[in-house]
Design a protein around this nucleic acid. Sequence first.
DNA 1: TCAATAAATGCAACAACGTTGCAATAAAGT
DNA 2: ACTTTATTGCAACGTTGTTGCATTTATTGA
Lengths: 142, 142
Amino acid sequence: MQQRCNKVFMVNLLKSKNISETPFRKEVLEIFSKYNNAIPLSIVEKELKKYNRITLYRTIKVFLEKGIIHKITISGEDSNYAICQEECNTDAHRHQHIHFKCKKCKTIYCVEINEFPAITLPNYKVEQLEIQATGLCENCNV
Amino acid sequence: MQQRCNKVFMVNLLKSKNISETPFRKEVLEIFSKYNNAIPLSIVEKELKKYNRITLYRTIKVFLEKGIIHKITISGEDSNYAICQEECNTDAHRHQHIHFKCKKCKTIYCVEINEFPAITLPNYKVEQLEIQATGLCENCNV
DNA sequence: TCAATAAATGCAACAACGTTGCAATAAAGT
DNA sequence: ACTTTATTGCAACGTTGTTGCATTTATTGA
Ligand SMILES: [Mn+2]
Ligand SMILES: [Mn+2]
Ligand SMILES: [Zn+2]
Ligand SMILES: [Zn+2]
């Protein structure tokens, strides 16, 4: 697994995606990479030294478009965001992982999965699956 | 399969859920039951004779709480709603179906599925799965 | 059937979340 | 260092959804 939690990696990530490296973007990226789970904007906001709502929205938008982060939408929850583990780009965010929400600690994890399930539906052509699971996470499953 | 598309059924549904039957609610219910796919509020709005934004929101909320409809949230899309096919209630909306979005016609279907996949994750306790699929629907899969 | 009661509706006002135009500022390329 | 290009931040706006309150409608039961 690639190391994704240091400043050198951050800057390279921005460079590799062809977006200019600004203090704001680096800081946001560091916040994301510090967590090993998905986080809502409210957390990013709190952790930012200098917070500007509009710039944050625009930063998130750029990161989404460039495949740096992906968005996790669970009904009734704030949107959550997490760093992309695989190589993603604007069009394709194919992840071999599921999104797991712990009922107890409410954390949302991106969980890698090796045997990704397949579904066949008569008359339909299924091309992609997105799976959200709920239950108890590693920490809460005592 | 139960017949879910006539006025008698509608009224019984409202009665059985212990909510009073008003013209507005009956009309909304008829719109939902007329479609065999999930629809956003914009469609409900257009089909209503007399549309009131606030009353619609409140109606939707009640229908959700009573397990008459369920909400389908797909990232980047308007929320969609569909009549519940099984017996649902406030707490439990367990459906043995997936949500399928057709890439071509953009329709979102609730598709019943008999062999619902299972997932096991080391150290996690997986209790529930929610699956969203994309591809081509019956009509577009030529 | 009709009055009493309880619930739903609709208006105004508000709040959260997100976007856009534009001027000021900072980063990149030469 | 200077020019060009992109980002930032402010003000203003749009959309989605909510709440308080008065009015209207549905339900109950005498
Ligand atoms: Mn993920
Ligand atoms: Mn459904
Ligand atoms: Zn947990
Ligand atoms: Zn289709």
